[in-house]
Design a binder for these strands. Structure first.
Lengths: 162, 162
DNA sequence: AAATTACGTCAATAGTACTGACATAATCTC
DNA sequence: GAGATTATGTCAGTACTATTGACGTAATTT
């Protein structure tokens, strides 16, 4: 079996290899911009959750304010992200992607999406929800609220307020 | 749909969250040893492929010799890994885990394996091979030779060699 | 004998992360 | 309204992981 000593080495290793190559696609593109993976992650979530605050972003990325600072500043300086004062609470800064930012986020996501699509096809998995369910179950239960898979989760009506 | 602009944002994001939490388990343990993720990766592969050479390890990890050097040296100095002169080619150094190294590799793998097991259960996926097939398909084709899932690949009846 | 290979090491640099401390402005609480 | 708390920004110092380039040694190949 692929399980030795009761340890599932097979999937542990496959996750490493899959993630290694999954991140290698955007890395190529990022290098042209002088950006790294940290920029990618920030841009991705700003694009996916426009209007999210700095505090929310820190919580999703699980990094510190100081780590975010440099990366976010560069994205703002290069006109990929803008900050707007929060409407309800003026201390907050809501983060939005610019058109340029959305374009880059899309360019970075494209090869990753292609890889996923090909993998779903190659592996002959009819039900994409199987993969989604497994990956979601891998996330810490108390952090699953961070996931926003669109209608995938509460398909049908209202994936309303969090 | 979870697919916007033809991009599979759902699985892209789920991979990020799943991997983030998947690596957080061993990170806790590694901190006690003054080790980081790089040590984990090296120890993992030395444990899984005892006798592998430095060049092979570099190829699997996709890092440079210089990056490996410090990490490997620390693992050797702390008696987690030993180097033996290659039997056929005495220039090569075959890497083996010590008992101590195997114990640590196992301790690091345990929580990850538990998480995977729980996720397979929670997501109600009867066929673990579905997940394995998807993850394997995510790896660059030319690098799939690096994967050694033990008997998992040829288990029972053939979904045989690619 | 000369070229190549496998490995080790030195120096310099970059990207991402951390802790701790401090500042400012806005909001909340009493 | 005064004071506490919150959201954000910033400075200083440090750690880990990674890079490129260069050089050395021993073993193997040509």
């Amino acid at each position: 079996m692929s399980v030795e000593d009761g340890i599932d080495f097979a999937i542990i290793e496959l996750l490493f290899f899959a993630y290694r190559d999954f991140t290698s696609d955007p890395d190529q593109i990022l290098a042209d911009y002088g950006f790294g993976r940290a920029h990618h992650r920030v841009l991705h979530f700003v694009n996916r959750r426009p209007g999210l605050t700095v505090a929310e972003l820190l919580d999703v990325l699980k990094i510190t304010k100081q780590s975010l600072a440099r990366v976010l500043k560069q994205l703002i300086d290069t006109d990929h992200v803008v900050q707007l004062q929060g409407p309800r609470d003026r201390r907050q800064r809501e983060l939005y992607p610019t058109a340029k930012g959305r374009a880059l986020a899309l360019a970075l996501a494209r090869p990753q999406s292609r890889r996923i699509h090909a993998a779903l096809g190659d592996s002959g998995i009819a039900e994409r929800t199987l993969v989604e369910r497994f990956l979601e179950a891998m996330v810490n239960p108390e952090l699953r609220a961070q996931i926003d898979v669109g209608s995938a989760k509460m398909s049908g009506k209202s994936h309303g307020e969090h």
